[in-house]
Amino acid sequence: MIATITKERLTKFQPLIALFIMCIAISLLSENFLTVDNGWNILRQISINICISVGMTLVILTKGIDLSVGSILAFAGAVGAGLLKFGIDIPSEGINIGFTLLGGILAAILVGGILGWFNGFAITKFKAPAFVVTLAMLTMARGFTMLYTGGFPINGLSESFGFIGTGWFLGVPFPVWITLVVVLLAVFMTNKTAAGRYIYAIGGNENAALLSGINTKRVKIIVYTISGITAAIGGLMLTSRLDSAQPNAGLSYELDAIAAVVIGGTSLSGGKGTILGTVLGALIIGVLNNGLVLLNVSPFWQQVVKGAVILLAVIMDKTNKE
Rank of each mutant, 00 (worst) to 15 (best):
L170N: 02
L110I: 13
A141H: 03
K321L: 01
K127T: 03
T100L: 02
Q303P: 05
N96K: 14
I46R: 09
I26Q: 11
A195N: 13
V304R: 02
I88D: 08
A3Y: 01
T190P: 03
E31L: 07
F300Y: 12
N191V: 00
T179S: 07
L283C: 04
P153W: 04
V279P: 15
T225C: 08
N38G: 06
M146P: 02
G156D: 08
G80P: 12
L84T: 06
G228T: 03
K217D: 14
T35R: 07
L236C: 07
L83R: 10
K12Q: 14
G94C: 03
G156Y: 11
N248G: 01
I5F: 13
K85S: 10
G104P: 09
A260L: 06
I72S: 01
I233G: 00
K192T: 07
N215K: 14
L135R: 04
V314Q: 12
V36F: 15
T190S: 12
I226V: 14
G151C: 04
G234P: 05
K12P: 09
G291C: 04
L102S: 10
A122G: 06
Q303E: 00
T100I: 00
A186F: 13
G103R: 04
A74D: 03
N248Q: 11
G213H: 06
I24C: 13
V297P: 15
I21N: 08
A232W: 07
V54W: 01
L19Q: 08
L106E: 00
N205Y: 05
V305G: 09
A259Q: 10
T134F: 15
N49D: 15
S240N: 07
M189A: 13
V304D: 09
G235N: 09
N119C: 05
L102N: 11
I109W: 06
V69K: 01
I88L: 11
S298L: 04
